[in-house]
C-alpha cells in the first residue's frame, strides 16, 4: 500500500514537471476563471445586501426618530394605515430598535466602526411600507405627508435607489457570469490537453502497465491527482486575487462613506472565506474530474 502511495506521488510530481508550460497555462487560466466565479458571488452578495432592505416589495421606508414614545409610533402607524387602498396594511412592517439594529449589523458588515456608534439614542426605527398592487405612484404622492408627521425623521423611496442598483447589478452579473463560464471552459480544455499530452508522453509506460495487469484506476489516479493539484493551485491563486480585490473594493467603498447606505456593498469576512473555500474545492473537483475523464478517454492504448 505504502509503495503504491509513493509511486502515485512520484509519478504525479514527475508529470507536473515534465509539462511545465502547459501546467502553468492551465493553472493560470483556472486561477483567473475561479477568481471571476468567486468575484461574481461577492459582487452579487454586495448588491443583495444593498437591496435587502427593500426586499418583499417594500417601496417606502419611514424612519422614526429614536426618541419617539410608543404612543407617537402608534400615531404614525395609524396615519399610514389610514390609506388602506394604497398601503397594503397586512404587509406593513415595523422594525423596532432590536430589529433595526440587526438590520444595521448586516448592512454595515464592512463598516464595523460606524456600527459600533449605533445605540438606543441615535438609531432610528423604521416602517417598511408595501403598496397595494399598482398603487406605487399614489404612495409616492403620500410621502411628503408622512414626512411632516411628528418624530418622522425622513421618508425614503425605493424608486430612487433600487432601480438603478438593480440595473447595475444585472449588468455586472451578466458580464461576470459570462466571462467566468468562458474561462472555466478554457481552463478545463487546458487541463484536458495537459493530461492528454502527459499520457501521450507516457504511452509506452501505460501500455506496459496494462499488459502486466495494473488496474485502470491505478493508471488514472496519478493523472487525476495532477489535475486536482492544478485546480488546487489555481484555486489558491484565485483566493489571493479575491482577497486583494476585496480589500481594494472595501477601501473604495469606505471612502464613499458620506452616504452610509453604500457600506452595504461590502461583504463580511465570513462570506469571503466561504466563497474562497468553495472556489478551492470547486477547482480541485473540476480539475480531478476533467483529468480523470481525459485519462479514461486515452486509456485504450
Amino acid at each position: 500500500m505504502l509503495s503504491r502511495v509513493g509511486y502515485i506521488f512520484r509519478e504525479t510530481w514527475a508529470s507536473l514537471r515534465r509539462n511545465v508550460t502547459l501546467t502553468v497555462a492551465a493553472i493560470l487560466t483556472s486561477a483567473v476563471s475561479l477568481f471571476l466565479v468567486g468575484g461574481t458571488f461577492l459582487v452579487q452578495r454586495g448588491f443583495d445586501n444593498l437591496l435587502s432592505k427593500w426586499s418583499g416589495g417594500v417601496q417606502m421606508i419611514v424612519y422614526v426618530n429614536y426618541s419617539a414614545t410608543p404612543e407617537q409610533v402608534d400615531a404614525i402607524k395609524q396615519v399610514i394605515e389610514s390609506n388602506p387602498t394604497v398601503v397594503d396594511v397586512k404587509k406593513l412592517d415595523y422594525l423596532d430598535y432590536d430589529r433595526s439594529l440587526a438590520e444595521a449589523k448586516r448592512l454595515l458588515a464592512g463598516d464595523p466602526g460606524t456600527f459600533a456608534l449605533l445605540n438606543k439614542n441615535n438609531l432610528p426605527t423604521e416602517f417598511k411600507v408595501v403598496p397595494m398592487p399598482g398603487k406605487t405612484d399614489v404612495l409616492v404622492g403620500l410621502a411628503d405627508g408622512f414626512d411632516g408627521l411628528p418624530k418622522v425623521e425622513r421618508v425614503v423611496l425605493a424608486r430612487d435607489q433600487v432601480q438603478q442598483i438593480s440595473k447595475l447589478r444585472n449588468f455586472v452579473q451578466t458580464v461576470t457570469v459570462g466571462l467566468s463560464v468562458l474561462l472555466l471552459v478554457g481552463a478545463l480544455i487546458l487541463i484536458w490537453t495537459t493530461i492528454r499530452t502527459a499520457m501521450f508522453a507516457r504511452r509506452r509506460e501505460i501500455e506496459v502497465m496494462k499488459l502486466v495487469g495494473a488496474t485502470n484506476w491505478f493508471i488514472r489516479i496519478p493523472f487525476m491527482l495532477e489535475g486536482l493539484i492544478q485546480g488546487l493551485i489555481g484555486g489558491l491563486l484565485s483566493c489571493a486575487f479575491l482577497v486583494f480585490f476585496n480589500r481594494l473594493w472595501t477601501n473604495g467603498v469606505v471612502q464613499l462613506q458620506g452616504e452610509n447606505s453604500f457600506t452595504a456593498l461590502v461583504v463580511s469576512d465570513s462570506f469571503l472565506n466561504f466563497v474562497m473555500l468553495m472556489v478551492v474545492i470547486f477547482g480541485m473537483v473540476a480539475g480531478a474530474i476533467a483529468s480523470g475523464v481525459a485519462a479514461s478517454r486515452f486509456l485504450d492504448v
Partner: peptide, 27 residues
C-alpha cells in the same frame, strides 16, 4: 522488448511488480 528507456534494468523489472501493488520486500 518494450522496455522503458528512462528506467534502469532493475527499475524496469521492479516496475511490473510495483504497478500491481506488490510490497517493497517482495520486490
Amino acid at each position: 522488448y518494450k522496455l522503458l528507456l528512462n528506467k534502469t534494468v532493475h527499475e524496469n523489472v521492479a516496475f511490473a511488480l510495483e504497478v500491481i501493488g506488490r510490497p517493497k520486500h517482495v520486490i
